[in-house]
Computed example of a mutant assay.
Amino acid sequence: MGYVLILNNEQFDIQNKSERKNSKKDVLALKNVFYKFNCSVKIVMNPTLKDIHDNLNELLIENLKQASCLVVVLMTHGLENDHAYAKDKIYNIGDEILKSKSFQDFKDLPKILIIQACKNEDKDFKASCEHTKPKVYNTFRYNSCFEGGKSLRADGGTLFIQTLYNNLNNYGLDEDIESIAKRVNREFENEYKDYKQNPTILKYNGGFDKFCFGNNVKKTFCLKENVSKSFVVG
């Protein structure tokens, strides 16, 4: 079974940080499509940095020992140089997510990191140069925009997550995640080019084996079918 962790920051304790209204619509869409893929879904609303750290370093570990994949979806306000907002403070995504036990200890587990956040400069924020690039294995990362870019949100949710949801819902049982991401990118290039938002794909450790949620669903179905055939009446 796939394991999905959705970290959605809608409200913030940080001064002058605006609420991310309508982000719950993104959470609902993703929850529905990952349930369709027979994934276990955990949703953490408005996580603090400690919540993020605890989930990725302790709370998920036992579940991942039997998982077919890990999907982490991060939805929040973002900054340049891979920084993002938790409910209570700014953190570096590489340090808190990619260097976590979930990503480092399970090297062979297919891991998908989806980030819905701006990556633009904030004049009041200065990124530290002390962060080192983590070595990550078997991980597919999909950002809602390029470095320096903004990610759009409206009444129906964010443009990136809702477009990704539609493509996962339509093609997720038959196509691998990279092919679906490329479909999303083509939509942004052709239909949303006036918005100047371009999602970006990054594969760590020199590559990422193709992962299709449909294969996971078929495998789960076969296991259930075999279990049912092992029992007889009488």
Rank of each mutant, 00 (worst) to 15 (best):
D54G: 09
G78Q: 11
G78E: 03
V44F: 02
H83K: 08
I52Y: 00
T76Q: 07
H53T: 14
L56S: 01
K65M: 09
G78W: 04
V71Y: 05
V71T: 12
D88Y: 02
H83R: 10
K42A: 11
H53L: 12
L64V: 06
G78P: 03
T76H: 03
D51P: 09
V44L: 13
D88V: 06
L70D: 04
I61G: 08
N92Q: 10
S68T: 14
D51N: 15
V71F: 12
N55T: 11
I43W: 07
V44M: 02
V44S: 09
K65V: 10
N63F: 11
G78T: 03
L79P: 08
I90V: 14
D82R: 09
N81W: 10
V73T: 05
N92M: 10
I61R: 06
L74F: 07
E58F: 15
V72Y: 00
L60C: 11
L59I: 15
V44E: 11
N81H: 14
D51S: 12
S68P: 07
C69H: 14
I90A: 02
L64Y: 04
E80S: 09
M75Y: 02
L70M: 05
L56V: 03
L70A: 05
E80R: 04
P47K: 06
L56E: 00
E58A: 15
N92D: 15
T48I: 04
I61Q: 09
K87P: 01
Y91E: 02
N55Q: 13
M75K: 01
H53E: 14
G78H: 04
Y85T: 04
H53Y: 15
K89W: 01
L74K: 05
I52H: 05
S68F: 07
D82T: 10
N81V: 12
K87H: 06
A86Y: 01
V73S: 03
L60K: 05
N63Y: 10
L56K: 00
D88L: 05
L70S: 03
I43Q: 07
Y91I: 08
L60D: 07
L74W: 00
N81E: 15
D51F: 03
D82P: 04
K65S: 09
K87S: 11
Q66D: 14
A84F: 11
C69N: 12
G78I: 02
A86F: 05
L74Q: 02
H77I: 02
D82V: 04
C69W: 04
S68W: 02
D54E: 12
D54S: 14
N46A: 11
N63K: 15
N81R: 11
K50Y: 15
K65A: 08
N63T: 08
L74T: 09
I43A: 04
M75A: 10
L64I: 05
K50F: 15
K42Q: 11
T48E: 08
K50W: 14
V73I: 14
I61W: 06
K65D: 07
Q66I: 12
V44A: 09
I90Y: 01
I43L: 07
E58G: 06
I43S: 09
L56I: 04
V73E: 00
A86R: 05
K42L: 14
N63R: 13
N46G: 10
K50C: 08
L56C: 01
G78D: 05
H53I: 05
V44N: 11
P47H: 00
